[in-house]
Write a protein that binds this DNA or RNA. Sequence first.
RNA 1: GCCGCAGUAGCUCAGUGGUAGAGCACGUCAUUGGUAAUGACGGGGUCGGAAGUUCAAUUCUUCUCUGCGGCACCA
Length: 644
Amino acid sequence: MFELKFPDGAIRQYENNISPLEIAEGISKSLAKRVVGAKIDGQVWDLSRPIEPKDTPQTFELINRDSDDGLEIIRHDAAHIMAQAVQELFPDTQITIGPSIEDGYYYDFVREDKFSTDDFEKIEAKMREIVDRDLPIVREEWDREVAIKHFNEIGEIYKAKIIEEIIPEGETLTVYKQGDNWKDLCRGPHMPSTGRLGKAFKLMKLAGAYWRGDAKNAQLQRIYGTAWADEKGLKDYLVRLEEAEKRDHRKLGRQLNLFHMQEEAKGMVFWHPKGWTMYRALENYIRRKIEASDYVEVKTPQLMDKTLWEKSGHWEKFGHAMFTCETVEEEILAVKPMNCPGHVQIFNQGQKSYRDLPLRMAEMGCCHRFEPSGGLHGIMRVRNFTQDDGHIFCRVDQIYSETKDFCELLRTVYNDLGVELHSVKLALRPDVRAGSDETWDYAEKMLKEAAEAAGEIVELLPNEGAFYGPKLEFHLKDAIGRTWQCGTLQLDFVLPERLDAEYTGEDGQKHRPVMLHRAILGTFERFLGILIENHAGNFPMWLAPVQVVVANITSDSEQYAKDVCHKLRAAGIRAETDVRNEKINFKIREHSLQKVPVIAVVGSREAAEGKVALRRFGSQAQEILSLEEAMAMLSTESLPPDMK
RNA sequence: GCCGCAGUAGCUCAGUGGUAGAGCACGUCAUUGGUAAUGACGGGGUCGGAAGUUCAAUUCUUCUCUGCGGCACCA
């Protein structure tokens, strides 16, 4: 006998060898059908695996199929059932790994022939068949050497590799059998039988993926699927994907006439008047913010001689991503991929003293990088972009306060712009790096403590830092749920050394300043992409490319419409007229589709009384105001968040 | 860069081994209409590019370019 403590606090006694499923069945049949696993002392447990008795009561919780833990189990089972289906259909396939992921799962396969999305239907049908067979899923513990030998013998080379290369010796190896003829090395847990999966799953996409995430290794064939507790969950998910597609910045960029891209300039944006208006609104905003934070703004050359880039170290580390050009006089110039070397050149002019530090130098720096073709993505990942860049030259003892100030500034900006920070990460020292361990210890500690002092929860990324220093990353989420690094702060001990930056200290001696590379938005391109998707194109007044459209009803009120527009513009409002020979319904529809925040309708009544009839985007209500009232109200509404 | 998928009018998409279609947009004309599509007529395409198979290719094959989804790389 042993005791379990239930979520409601009740402690019950059970016979040894009882499984969570038996406990659930003891409570109610319908509950037993709904659950997919259990949690014992917080550890996920197979439903059919006997609980190990302990002297003290263990906490016990059943996992429902529609809970987060439950969905994870369902998706993991779906991955296995898919793998079995694939191997039954294509016996020449090897299995490797197949985890559950957000909203679904994948499985990586090795097979000479290529899968095609045309195979999906067949695989799904086989999966449904395996579910109908309701094969028992049985957990077994295996000896390490036996397992390696076995998997090698049956030709599952990758499974053997996983044991040899990934699983530490001494860890219990578990194998899950699905029926008599299929098994997989797996940590589990799994449901008691394949029938429990249900049929709310769907194969989504096919992709290549490198073994262990390393491009030097073989490329496997990955099949992605999604799986849910029930049909409704699946349907809702698919609807959600469709909705997200409508917010795609590439689609909205076209529909709202913000920008375009074309083959002859891959990864480079052609900003149209409307998109550029948004860009400038954002740029003006961020410029005010950094000016208020005691930055000085500069502008440095687009092209600089290759020798400077060699000296800075970029040529060696970053040369593969740099565009170059050769002059008729045979100099080789490189297009800047970063602004930092230019900023050091300005810092190096004249003499600097400790009194000049911290020196915060900003630039709306237009950079070019040769990004791999497969990585380009709309305006979020491009080859030509402009950073709201800045470099803070400071003393080592100023790192903490500069970092903290930066984090706080970034917070106010993101709040103003209405974006939600997804995560803050701290990329720690890589294996190959410059600088002493003491320096790294100090640098990592400062960044972490400063970010935390600013109220951020910092996630650590071992090994991910730049060779010259650790890096804080600020991530945002797009419409499809992908996250993008936007803001960043990077510590650099190396560049000041390489480019001979120095200042005179209180002691009269020369010292090296430390450089903090930092950007709040990251790049205007990426950030605007995020803003477009986050707002689904329904921009707040201050960002909207056209804030007000003045539409007349008949040509009688054409002149009045033009007068109104003229006055709104004089008041600083981005207004346009629509005096086309069209019905008012047509105009309302068109400007609503363009998501213009305010439509001012003027007919003969308004013209006679000096009024306007305002209609807000997303509402059918009319608000009739005098032109003066409307102007005052709309000017206030159009103020950027920092000027309100 | 690697793997899979796709490329037809400005946009969204149909279609076929036998000279290419729709809706919207665009142009002209008529219409002056109070809050999400007024009507008629018209112009518009080397069916991404190149080669091959064929009497004949937008359609089949190969190569290539670009886009999309992943992977890798990265703001």
